[in-house]
């Protein structure tokens, strides 16, 4: 519907403007706030794609933790109002960012995403999300009207199932990494001496 188009364009413009503003705005604190705004807009885009769990996790983690981390880091920097000092790497950085953006857009557009379609789209999406987060139950999915291909793509892509099943090694490695980061933070915060 045209209503959804309006919402999509508003959210997209806010996200892109926020992201651009992070780089281009002089005041670093405002840049951090614009980053948080961009995160919220991306969360809104997730809601539009019926991925409410992802949207909520996006806001909880990105806005609630990472944006706060950015703001703290900005606060510890001096001369926030003046922004970045001019340096010679701006043009090369812009070129490389543009190339990276082009590569990502090309990849995203040319991938064959498996999407749910047909009647009862929202109900199917709700069910797919619940199953994706919890324990996938193929009979529930089939009885809700998902085709076998969709059942395959949803239940094999269940987040918890994947984490404990196929991706258990990266999962454990990430937990070790977190432990290392926490201990490193403690070590840094203690200071030297004592």
């Amino acid at each position: 519907m045209w209503f959804e188009h309006i919402v999509f364009w508003v959210l997209s413009v806010v996200a892109i403007a926020g992201a651009l503003g992070v780089v281009l705005v002089r005041d670093l604190f405002r840049g951090a706030l614009l980053l948080a705004t961009a995160f919220v807009a991306v969360g809104g885009l997730f809601v539009m794609m019926n991925a409410e769990f992802l949207a909520v996790v996006q806001i909880l983690i990105y806005v609630g933790a990472i944006a706060v981390l950015f703001i703290f880091a900005v606060m510890l920097t001096r001369d926030v109002q003046q922004g970045n000092a001019p340096n010679r790497l701006q043009i090369p950085a812009a070129v490389i960012s543009a190339l990276l953006l082009a590569a990502m857009i090309a990849t995203a557009v040319s991938t064959d995403w498996t999407t749910l379609s047909g009647a009862g789209l929202e109900a199917k999406a709700q069910l797919a999300q619940t199953q994706a987060v919890g324990i996938p139950n193929a009979s529930d999915l089939t009885s809700a009207g998902l085709t076998p291909a969709e059942v395959e793509s949803v239940s094999s892509g269940g987040l918890a199932d994947l984490l404990i099943g196929n991706f258990v090694l990266p999962f454990e490695a990430v937990s070790l990494l977190l432990l290392g980061a926490a201990i490193g933070g403690l070590a840094l915060a203690r200071g030297r001496g004592r």
Binding site: L33, A36, E52, F53, V56, V57, I59, L60, V63, G64, A65, A67, V68, I71
Partner: peptide, 12 residues
């Protein structure tokens, strides 16, 4: 999760 996410907006 939604309520938790929204309450984390307060910290910013």
């Amino acid at each position: 999760l939604f309520v938790l996410a929204v309450s984390s907006l307060t910290s910013i």
